[in-house]
Write a protein that binds this DNA or RNA. Sequence first.
RNA 1: UGGGGCGUAGCCAAGUGGUAAGGCACCGGUCUUUGGAACCGGCAUUCGUUGGUUCGAAUCCACCCGCCCCAGCCA
Length: 573
Amino acid sequence: MKNLESEASSAPEKSSGEVDERSNFIRDIIIQDIKAGKHGGRVQTRFPPEPNGYLHIGHAKAICLDFGLAAEFGGQCNLRFDDTNPSREESEYVDAIMADVQWLGFKWDGLFYASDYFGQLYEWAVQLITAGKAYVSDLSAEEMREYRGTLTEPGREDPHRNRSVEENLELFERMRRGEFPDGSRTLRAKINMASPNLSLRDPVMYRILHMEHHRTGNQWCIYPLYDYAHGQSDSIERVTHSLCTLEFDNNRALYNWFIEQLGIFPSQQYEFDRLSLTYTVMSKRKLLKLVQEELVKGWDDPRMPTLSGMRRRGYTPEAIRNFCASLGVSKTNGITQLQQLEYYLREDLNKHALRVMAVLKPLRVVIDNYPDDLVEEMEAINNPEDASAGTRKVLFSKVLYIEQEDFREDPPKQFYRLAPGREVRLRYAYLITCQSVVKDAEGNIVELHCTYDPATRGGNTPDGRKVKSTIHWVSAAHAVDAEVRLYDTLFTKEDPSENGEDFIDNLNPNSLEVLTGCKVELSLRDAAPATRYQFERLGYFCVDPESAPGHPVFNRTIGLRDTWAKIEQRAKR
RNA sequence: UGGGGCGUAGCCAAGUGGUAAGGCACCGGUCUUUGGAACCGGCAUUCGUUGGUUCGAAUCCACCCGCCCCAGCCA
């Protein structure tokens, strides 16, 4: 991707049914600003991740807002890495973040790094010192904390607060040259130690850090802090609407202070609520812990709320974008229910995923009156939601597998599937009737004997008779063995950290179930990684990168809505 | 206890003085060769509380209650 491309920031094209942008207070502000002719009606936004972790679904909301608003109003949106702290930032994260933004469907206009501005930021610092607005402090971190005061008590002035401009200039220059050890000195803004807003009590602008930076190498040993870098970076890029999350509300006064003192382009910051989702955690610190302690299998573990994890799980960019569009943009702290995300996931997958048949927990079925060596090709619809997806042939023969759950020797009320003496339809094949049950020594059901009605080929009933149920199947002789990974929520509680609990204690021990010996139809033998399917009546599944030709591995993205499970659950209570 | 932000249904959320949008979830029903999808219908006499202003208040005022953020040389 080139720097500063000239075309307007692009958002993905709307597919039919895509959720429209909804009214929200930030959008209203932009509309008003344009109407008022502010900045000549220009809209410039930016998405500013720190490259210290992978992007997650919470970032997706911010990305959709930043890029979406720019695109909607003919503006531009930059991707800018907020890389002011070399102690925790890595280029691995830079690469992953760029890949995720692009996968989500967005294209940035300018690609920048806060570190691009280190030189300018240094010059501005000198300017503030010269104007008597900044000074070098010799206080240690502990001392500075003591001097800062508390929420209810004002702070005390730094003993070095009134150093001469000349001395400050010289000291700051020597800091830059590397004459002092880490932590020995800082550059502070001279604002107001008695401010009720703690971020205005002479905040630190620069700290000494003798550490290699992923982009600037060893060029610098002093690094600006977020508050001293962010607003000015926005200003340099002439960002008109700088969107960030609620916790930065307190920082806005400082954001404005630097811009005013410097007399530079007046970017404006607006805060909105960050996304929280039930049954997961969204802080980078927590996600990093899960990865580092190997409680999950990496950043892209399909149980993670990271975009890379969700991608591997089988989520589509469209589903995530639609979900984000359905969300509100407000200033309320809330927790969105997982079901809302899942709704948009199913909605998109239903429209696009090809249907296939697969049996997760196989039960052998012998059709006694079917010719021993006959193999028939049954025509199956690839996607009832999309006629252009066409049809395919599925092989049928005397011995089949059906789902264990689709048979009950003693069927409860409302169970419509196969049972002794009962007739059901095999999807796209024949109507069969269960004649007998074979059990092993322990009494486990190991095989069913059924008969079929030759007149019902394709699943049709020339005599018009109805069966209550249609079940899926796969021909034993033509099935391919597969591994299927079933996922449940990573945590057992809606809020894993509720009441100050350690989120690790609420990990779901059953969040991953690996099934082997699953039987899938022949067409899936060499399925390509990342391909998404609907296994009929079961759910949506995505081919894992660990899959190999002949040995397919699937991740269950999400199950189909299951009315029977609901009925059964209700009956148990 | 200082400052800032926020409180509309189980969840998210419109609404900005004229008599409570929408989505998710949930509950019914229609249809169905996926108990899927689709479709139809139901779901807040009430907007954190209590007073006040007004012909009229979720919207204006006052008080109170609750939740979130800020005391990193993190972002």
